Amino acid sequence: MTGPVVVGVDGSPSNPAVVEVAAREAERLGVGLELTQAVGWPSGAGRFAIPSWEADGTGGHASTSGVLAEAERYARDAAPRVRISRGVLVGEPGTVLEGESRTASLTVVGSDGARGRGTRRDGSLAERLSACVSGPLLVVRGRPDPVGPVLLVVHGASTLRAAAEFAFAEASARGADLVSVRLRNISAARPYGGSARATTEDEEDLALAEALSELRERYPDVALRCRRPRGGSRRALVEAGADSQLLVVGVRDRFRFARLPLDPVCRTALHEADCPVALVRC
């Protein structure tokens, strides 16, 4: 991945934390950071005229340049060596960030925590982007400074490979362990890449280990542990994320092209996890 980390800047109270996370991600990936602010089309600007936002912030967006300058200060404090660019684009935030994600290594947004963290209403922009963004999407939510392992959520063969690659790379860059959690009531009917037949838990564990063997060789510094939680998938997912610094879950690509709602696993992660969530398109 050579494109920048793109982060949405909106001037909200929670946005500094989002920018800091994005800056550290850019540092880990060895790429630049792009601070992107979306603004509506100003009244009186003319049909084809785009005003100079950085010059004077006219058109009803008086603090645009100040918001970006403040975001850049937070980013430089978090990752002083990262190359930073910034810009203001006219359009609805979801549309703007979707477009910018096409050349990005990673897109980073907040979870709209002002709407009530841990509730089903949380994360409207993040959920919209999850259905259309190109590449991985990192949603900053939960504890302000999460610690612990990187958590890979395993919920089917079709979402395993790309999500696992992202999770291993993040664990290696962060110097963290990687924990895989297999959600029993979603993946138990089919081994990873195998036929649809009844399987024992030991067979599933073996199939999962084989599926991850190449990545374990590529990232020998990452200690991998596998959890086999009991109970429902929602409870297992929320409990596993409580002591993790990042939760990684795969999103089936058909949800992007058909603009379908997220599956229950991804929705639970996006709305209820107590740590940042990476949604990786598979």
Rank of each mutant, 00 (worst) to 15 (best):
R76M: 08
V222W: 03
W41F: 03
S233E: 13
G175T: 06
S172N: 09
S65L: 00
P51C: 08
P149E: 14
R182Q: 01
C282M: 15
V67S: 00
L138S: 01
R218T: 10
R216C: 12
A126H: 02
D77S: 11
H271V: 00
F255E: 11
S195F: 12
D263S: 06
V248L: 03
G123F: 08
V18I: 12
R234Q: 14
P80D: 10
G135A: 06
P16S: 01
L138H: 05
A45L: 01
G46Y: 15
S130H: 00
L35N: 11
T119M: 11
S244R: 04
H61M: 00
S213E: 13
V5G: 03
L125Y: 07
D177G: 05
A71G: 15
E27L: 11
T64D: 05
L215F: 04
G94R: 08
T95S: 07
P136Y: 09
A223K: 14
A258I: 02
G148A: 14
A164M: 02
P229E: 15
T58M: 03
P149I: 09
G66I: 03
S105A: 15
E203P: 10
A131P: 06
L247Q: 01
Y74K: 06
C275A: 13
V140A: 12
R227W: 12
G87M: 02
R216P: 08
A211Y: 03
V150Y: 10
R120H: 07
G175W: 11
E100L: 12
E34F: 13
R182I: 03
G193T: 13
S180D: 00
G3S: 07
A269P: 01
G46Q: 01
R73L: 15
R234K: 13
A23V: 08
D10W: 07
H271L: 04
E100M: 09
V150L: 02
S187F: 04
R174W: 06
L33S: 05
D202E: 10
L183N: 04
F255H: 09
E165G: 06
V5F: 09
G175E: 10
R115W: 03
T103W: 13
L33R: 06
R190M: 11
P229H: 07
S158K: 03
R252I: 01
V277L: 01
S124R: 04
C226K: 09
T64S: 15
R228N: 14
V82T: 06
R190H: 05
E70S: 15
F168C: 00
R197N: 00
L138T: 00
L89E: 12
C132I: 14
E20D: 07
F48C: 06
T119W: 10
L246P: 07
D205I: 11
